[in-house]
């Protein structure tokens, strides 16, 4: 095993451990952790099985195997960012509704206490 393989596997495992810790402490919801866990597992897989990357690159017609990694990673990141934007948009509108409800309820309460 080459040095870089060991480093890659170690870093990936640490990352996985950190994600698990975040989930246990309730700081990361499970549905958002899935993508991270899957990515980490893929990273570990290809750190162990170096020929696999070459094999797949050859299969899809990419000359340099690392380019396949970059393309795949960038694509995944873009999709995930879009997903986060959708989540933020949803939170934004829910937040607005809540704020409006609170303001109207506060008004109702203060009107009642005046009477």
């Amino acid at each position: 095993m080459v040095k870089i393989q060991i480093i890659a596997i170690l870093v990936s495992l640490l990352f996985l451990l950190y994600i698990v810790r975040l989930i246990i402490r309730g700081k990361l919801r499970e549905e958002y952790s899935i993508v991270w866990i899957v990515c980490t597992i893929i990273l570990i897989l290809f750190s162990l099985w170096r020929d696999g990357l070459e094999l797949i690159a050859d299969f899809v017609g990419v000359y340099e195997a690392p380019n396949l990694v970059f393309t795949g990673a960038i694509f995944a990141i873009l999709i995930y960012l879009l997903h986060l934007s959708i989540v933020v948009s949803k939170l934004h509108s829910q937040n607005k509704q809540l704020a409006q409800e609170i303001a109207l309820l506060k008004n109702k309460i203060s009107e009642k206490s005046k009477v």
Partner: peptide
């Protein structure tokens, strides 16, 4: 009638609160 929003919603959100009322 005073309606105080707990967070800043921008003009549209504020006016809509009035519409809801």
């Amino acid at each position: 009638i005073a309606i105080n929003l707990p967070i800043n919603l921008g003009i549209g959100g504020a006016v809509q609160t009035g519409f809801k009322y």
